[in-house]
Design a protein around this nucleic acid. Structure first.
Lengths: 144, 144
DNA sequence: TATAAAATAAGAATGGTTCTTATTTTAAAC
DNA sequence: GTTTAAAATAAGAACCATTCTTATTTTATA
């Protein structure tokens, strides 16, 4: 269900970020599209709605959101930077066939990892790649 | 201890990769420098030794090594692509102050993760960022 | 309403990586 | 050792994701 504008404004004001129209749209997009979009996907989608939207604005806004810990930036493979509105630690699985990204629950915070004794952990990323059940099923059916 | 040329040649031949001089040097570099270097770091280092070495060759060789699963490509944050000769699953911790990358042992293969039931997992990456003990110590001493 | 600070627009610039093509190197066959 | 085909390299152009620059617009405060 779509968030109200007031909710989105709150999101930003709580973090002392000015709620410009563009920022609200970008934030709204991330809340409605939890498929870890790239900056380009966000831009392409909103650009049709806001013809004057600048790609610089999208990048700038995303960077500001990441800085404010409102959004999480993730790179699962290559230099494929994506954004996630769910900032609590969780894993990401990327299917190499269809490219879809699945979230999964993780139980790893590193505090009990001997190798990391004395380290101050700020961010945790768990990223897997492989083949999802849908694509595995497709392969089997095609007899590959 | 430096690996013999014969060992390096074996590494490549086992995977049906032609052991050109440049490839042997790049592979040797990764074995001797297990600090997850970037392509540029590898290039800059070897370039003084092989003045005609091309950056394309470094990228090409690294990509071929990754393809052959001889080397692992990792991206801990941003679009900071690095290479690791240790291909067994393990975690990486990157210090945001000094930039150093630490390896740590992980106990996560996903086979017991309910959310990933039916998935075929090919690669696992666990990446943390934060502050390492050395930098934390430095901060304390400076009274920050 | 006025004003200062922040954000945006638009495109230039940057830099990491890939592409292109001529040349060189490798390896197999003889 | 020579020949030859295939693979790899060199060198720089090209690409593209992202950042930078600066004039203009928007936001928020007084």
């Amino acid at each position: 269900m779509k968030r109200s504008i007031e909710e989105l404004i709150s999101y930003l004001k709580e973090r002392e970020l000015r709620p410009s129209y563009q920022r609200l749209k970008i934030l709204g997009y991330l809340l409605e599209n939890r498929n870890h979009p790239t900056a380009d996907e966000i831009y392409e989608s909103l650009h049709s709605e806001i013809p004057t939207l600048s790609k610089s604005t999208v990048y700038n806004s995303l960077n500001v959101f990441v800085q404010a810990r409102l959004v999480k930036q993730l790179t699962i493979e290559d230099s494929d930077t994506r954004y996630d509105i769910v900032t609590q630690d969780h894993g990401h699985f990327k299917c190499e066939l269809c490219g879809r990204i699945y979230n999964f629950k993780i139980n790893i915070d590193g505090s009990d990892t001997p190798d990391l004794k004395g380290f101050n952990i700020k961010d945790r990323n768990v990223n897997f790649t492989g083949t999802c059940p849908s694509c595995l099923k497709g392969k089997e059916i095609r007899g590959r």
